[in-house]
Design a protein around this nucleic acid. Structure first.
Length: 522
RNA sequence: CGGGCCGUAGCACAGCUUGGUAGUGCGCUUGAAUGGGGUUCAAGAGGUCCCGGGUUCGAAUCCCGGCGGCCCGACCA
């Protein structure tokens, strides 16, 4: 691409690109993603390696995700709390599988101060001093330190269930960062609960799993397949891991939220013990579940198009942007006044129990620059109001889920009356669209040949977007999973719930209890 | 940690082969026009050419060493 620009820079500048984002999804999906994030002004890379700066527009989306998820947590009886960023290394060591899973990506704090060390050239270098007797890791997750707290808080069966959630940042030293999708530091929530019986803990695990599935569908307009992880993909230290797997537009899978049944592994490790109803001592049964800023990346890859971000209205920081068209100085004041009046009327309208968020963009920018900015930001509704509309009483409305030029003129009053309805319709349409995309790219597969063909690009040199979700049988062994992963980089994303029909594993000819979902993944 | 590529203005890059005044586009500032679609014109600001050493009258350019980044692989909530 850069070569083309070098060869013919003038032509490239004069030809207005057909799409706001280049390259397009088909041309280069990963690069398209980066450009969407940048064009929407959501986040940027920081000078701290692997970490991002989340800018107001991106953080606004996160705040809405946070706010709405939190309601579900509260509704299901959870309370928020906060635990330390730094975890003593000895805590991690308590659970063997857990420490093994996270050891390779821990940032370690070994010192507690800096000392000035004069250099030969006269400058001063600050070097770590005050070595800690026991190092800390910056939390990659908080099971161990929350477990230690739970051990203090839980004495009796009367203290159970203990239902806690924390909103926090965590750090996992990633080798290959990508904005929102995989960064060294990210924001998330982690729920941690302790229960009296395994049944109760499992019910909790499944309940929160259901909350995630519902949240994705109703708030992010993403249909996800709920199911269980195989042993190979399980959370380190968990007995069961449940996932919601979404498909994004390059047809890969992304894990959009996980809920773990931890059995007594972590309560043994942390000493979460309680006196039972019949006076015995027993270890508690714990769960944990989390959803992160990765959801923002998921939303982008699920809904954005070649003109930039497309936000589901429920998580759009601004629902309606009003663009005053002020071609002549004489009419300028009247147009702005009408725009403000329209904004005020819209703010009286309720959408999902809160006022519609409206912004009047009065910046003195020329032409369609402003309009394109809002397109790239993914605002659900754009409304133009100009001198001609003052006379006709109309406004020009464009939905972000429709083509850029699909402008509809509506009487101003009618638009106000229908604004909430339009937002519901956009939300609905995005979900339907994503659902259709997933269905079109999900295939029931019976043979090994068909399977390998499905996941092999036609053009080896420059792989096109290919594959999708494959529903195929599996004999339940780790060996098969391993083999497929080595051959195709395809893994089992989940074992879906529901009555699975038995069949034959296409890779081994052995019996299979049910079909599982295979895909390449993020 | 292995293989490849690259460090020049806020961003994207040209210039390096063949050493000789630091460039282009976007963005930014100011002014004017324009105004239902990514607008135009004019003026302007902005650089330790990654760092250190060497060769040379002279280094962004050549040589040596270092540091940093990107991509592919490996690893992976």
């Amino acid at each position: 691409m850069s070569k083309q620009q070098q060869q013919n820079p003038n032509q490239n500048q004069k030809q207005a690109p057909k799409t706001a984002i280049s390259p397009t999804r088909d041309e280069n999906f990963p690069e398209w993603y980066q450009q969407v994030v940048r064009s929407a002004d959501m986040a940027e890379n920081s000078e701290t390696r692997g970490c991002m700066v989340i800018k107001p527009w991106g953080y606004g989306v996160w705040e809405l995700i946070q706010r709405q998820l939190d309601v579900y947590f509260k509704d299901t009886g959870h309370k928020n709390a906060y635990f330390p960023l730094l975890i003593p290394v000895s805590y991690l060591e308590k659970e063997a599988a857990h420490v093994k899973g996270f050891a390779t990506e821990c940032a370690v704090v070994t010192h507690h101060r800096l000392e000035a060390e004069p250099q030969a050239d006269g400058s001063v270098k600050m070097v770590p001093a005050g070595k800690l007797s026991e190092p800390y890791v910056i939390r990659p997750t908080s099971e161990t330190i929350i477990g230690a707290a739970f051990a203090r808080w839980v004495q009796s069966y009367r203290d159970l269930p203990l239902l806690i959630n924390q909103w926090a940042n965590v750090m996992r030293w990633e080798m290959r960062p990508r904005l929102f999708l995989r960064t060294a530091e990210f924001l998330w929530q982690e729920g941690h609960t302790a229960h009296e019986t395994p049944e109760e803990a499992m019910t909790e695990t499944r309940l929160m799993h259901g909350v995630y599935e519902k949240f994705l569908r109703e708030h992010l307009a993403i249909p996800a397949i709920p199911g269980e992880k195989t042993e190979a993909e399980r959370f380190p230290g968990a007995l069961n891991t449940f996932t919601v797997e979404a498909m994004v537009q390059d047809r890969k899978a992304i894990q959009a939220g996980t809920s773990h049944f931890l059995g007594q592994n972590f309560s043994r490790a942390s000493g979460i013990q309680f006196q039972t109803r019949d006076g015995k001592q027993e270890f508690g049964w714990t769960t944990s579940w989390g959803m992160s800023t990765r959801m923002i990346g998921t939303v982008i890859m699920a809904h954005a198009d070649d003109d930039g971000l497309v936000l589901p209205p429920r998580i759009a920081p601004t629902h309606v942007v009003i663009l005053p068209i002020t071609p002549k100085e004489e009419t300028r004041a009247a147009v702005l006044e009408a725009a403000d009046k329209l904004a005020a009327e819209l703010r009286q309208i309720s959408y999902h129990g809160a006022a519609i968020e409206v912004e009047v963009d009065r910046r003195d920018l020329g032409g369609g620059v402003k309009n394109w900015e809002w397109i790239k930001k993914g605002v659900p509704l754009r409304v133009e109001i100009g001198p001609r509309d003052l006379e006709s009483g109309n406004v020009a409305v464009t939905r972000r889920d429709q083509p850029v030029k699909a402008k509809e003129f509506l009487p101003s009053g009618e638009f106000v009356a229908r604004a909430a309805e339009l937002l519901y319709a956009i939300q609905q349409n995005l979900l339907a669209r994503a659902q259709q995309f997933r269905d079109e790219n999900t295939r029931v597969i019976e043979t090994k040949e068909e399977f390998y063909d499905f996941f092999t690009p036609k053009n080896r040199e420059k792989p096109e977007i290919h594959g999708g979700f494959a529903l195929a049988h599996w004999n339940g062994t780790r060996e098969v999973e391993e083999q497929i992963k080595n051959d195709l980089k395809v893994t089992i994303r989940c074992i879906p719930f529901g009555e699975g029909e038995a069949g034959t594993c296409p890779f081994t000819g052995m019996p299979s209890a049910q079909r599982v979902v295979w895909a390449k993944s993020y």
